[in-house]
Simulated assay, not measured.
Amino acid sequence: MIFKELDPFQSDDKFARSGRAAEEKMAFYLKRFFGNDPDILVLNGIRIEADGDAAQIDHLVIHSHGLSIVESKSVHGKIQIKDDGQWIRWFGANQSKGMASPITQARLQERFFRDVLGKASKNEAFFSKFPIDLYVAISDDGIIIWPQSGPVSGVCKADQVADKIIESNQEKSAKKGLELTLDNRKKIAAFLKAINKPLTKTAPEPEVVEPQIAQAINPFPEPVADTATVHTCKHCGGKNLEIRYSYSYFFYCNDCERNTAIKAACPTCGGAAKLRKQKKEFFAECEKDAYSGLFFVNP
């Protein structure tokens, strides 16, 4: 399913037009493979600004077991990847020019998106381990000169990307890894589309969202405290508690003025959970299961 098309584009720069052509070709391949699949969401041309920084992703595919970031590269001659990670463009037989590594660019975009999604959902532990695959799509008429060590993972011709995404998703499914519900896939896609800020002047004005992304749109439901759990003072049984800190977090009873140890557990694995403070809210988090839930709110 194509959730977002490429934004309108207009430029007199031949290199910009060439890059756009590569993006349009990649968008065509993704539409051909996933356009009629309601379980896979494709967003073309996503640019996000946050905390004075910005990241542009050519194509983003959201599927049941994570995200796939696709960086399109327009190559009309040869492109060489050296064993030390350098990328070189070749013009004819003797002329060459170094270029920034698209793999490094994709990794930086990945980190940026993890941070944005983690803050927006108030579940940074989850998105820190969220599966994100990176692909560099070389245009159809380009020739890849591989390093002596062999092909580089994630780098391929544009028409091979969709097959690799399908293969990766199937492998994760077989391993019974993290699975995103369709509802959450749509929430992530809608959130990213809403905060998209294209640079092109011919594009329509983006939807207005609050500067603080974490407060503007939450792709997942707000965490709700477990109302079934009633925290009480172990000394007087009172409920007039607040969490304080001295070497570790503990409950302080405002009635009898005594302390009660806190034992937070992960509901998934049953192991000990760590507390994270955010203003008056305290979240119980388990790194192993990428769990984060509201544990207590101070009065």
Rank of each mutant, 00 (worst) to 15 (best):
F3N: 10
N169G: 02
L134V: 03
L43S: 04
I143T: 11
G270Y: 12
K263G: 06
K172H: 03
D163A: 06
L43F: 09
L199H: 10
A100N: 13
F220A: 04
K279T: 03
L182A: 04
E124M: 08
R47Q: 11
A265C: 10
S168F: 04
T181P: 00
R258A: 02
L117Y: 09
T268H: 05
E281P: 00
A106R: 01
A54V: 05
S149W: 00
K164N: 10
F33V: 10
M99D: 08
A190Q: 09
N94T: 14
T200A: 15
P38G: 07
G45T: 01
S153K: 10
V61N: 00
A27R: 04
R114H: 10
E281I: 04
S246R: 07
I243N: 05
K25N: 13
G270F: 11
N196F: 02
K280L: 05
I69T: 00
A27H: 09
N36I: 06
Q278H: 12
F251S: 00
P151E: 11
Q95F: 09
N254C: 14
D141W: 11
N254K: 15
E124Y: 02
S153D: 15
K129D: 10
A27N: 07
M99R: 14
K31D: 06
S128I: 07
E49N: 11
I243Y: 10
H63K: 14
A174D: 13
S11W: 09
E23K: 12
V75Q: 09
S139C: 10
L178P: 00
V208E: 12
V116T: 03
R111W: 12
K164Y: 10
D83I: 10
P211G: 14
K129N: 08
G238C: 09
P204A: 13
H76I: 05
S248I: 04
H59G: 02
M26F: 00
E110I: 09
Q105I: 01
V161F: 08
K279W: 08
F33R: 13
H235M: 14
G177S: 10
C286T: 03
Y249I: 05
L294T: 03
N259T: 11
S18N: 13
D84Y: 07
I88G: 01
L43K: 02
N254H: 15
G118T: 08
F113C: 03
V208R: 13
P299C: 04
K78W: 13
N44K: 08
P204V: 12
